[in-house]
Amino acid sequence: MNIFRLVGDLSHLAALIILLLKIWKSRSCAGVSGKSQIMFAMVYMTRYLDLFTTFVSVYNSVMKVVFLLFSFVTVYLIYFKFKATYDGNHDTFRVEFLVVPVAGLAVLVNHEFSFLEILWTFSIYLESVAILPQLFMISKTGCEAETITSHYLFALGIYRALYIANWIFRYYMEGFFDFIAIVAGCVQTILYCDFFYLYVTKVWKGKRLTIPA
């Protein structure tokens, strides 16, 4: 564990909490992409199957369970409890265009051709693009993202950016790297870059955020 990873994990956790609180307090999931949230739930489910096979640390297991739990609750709130407020008409990104190629890539490019390993690889690839329906939703409607949603996206983006710092650190300190995780992590971070720029130039100056289509 190093500082980049710890702060990255905490940022990841903060993102999930921000989104949950936003939905819960406003009793509405307007502006939130249910499709992105379903894909994140898939990411956690396929990656954290190792909860049953390997024990790393109490911290590791607790965080995995919390991520799974929070993501399930988020999906539940969007598709059941506050379904009436879900903006499905604007959440039109075709998820199969991401999931199918990502699944194919996971089968073709992996470290080891085994069930758990392919699912892990799938989760890494899927995570890197899972936010696209959310970004698409914000840009397509041309309507403003709520400031809270922007904070959520920022925290989620910072998490993967810090993980890149963590991988560089681990490469030099511990002498190893995971090519699949690094490439996917970089793709993921790049997808957030445009958003980061808008976030810093607009949200921090008190304006609302729009992503040009």
Partner: peptide, 10 residues
């Protein structure tokens, strides 16, 4: 087995 080491991450 180098690549398995990031499995201790989240």
């Amino acid at each position: 087995d180098v690549h398995h080491n990031v499995k201790d991450e989240l």
